[in-house]
């Protein structure tokens, strides 16, 4: 679970990890009921309604106002969003 929390970028205290793990274990336990199902011949359902080829014309639409957007940002500088140093991340 600690690895999952890292993947999800959630800082969770060790004590809470235990609590979460117990709760999630109960939920995962409930999921065992599907283990008995033979699903080998079943196609996964990935879309509730069968649409294909939904496309948009390559036409410009109005943009957002930069000042309005940057005013809502936690930190901005020089027309851009500011973040702390980027280390320990994949590129």
């Amino acid at each position: 679970m600690a690895k999952v929390a890292r993947l999800a970028r959630l800082d969770i205290a060790d004590s809470d990890i235990t609590h979460f793990t117990e709760q999630l274990a109960k939920v995962m336990d409930h999921f065992r009921d599907v283990d008995a199902l033979d699903l080998s011949a079943v196609a996964p359902m990935t879309q509730p309604y069968p649409l294909v080829n939904v496309l948009r014309a390559d036409e410009e639409q109005p943009c957002l106002d930069r000042d309005e957007v940057l005013a809502a940002a936690p930190a901005a500088e020089d027309g851009r969003f500011r973040v702390p140093p980027i280390i320990g991340l994949v590129d």
Partner: peptide
């Protein structure tokens, strides 16, 4: 101090 730490702390 850094962006990765900021992610974890913000989301927590």
């Amino acid at each position: 101090a850094d962006t990765n730490a900021m992610y974890g702390a913000t989301r927590a």
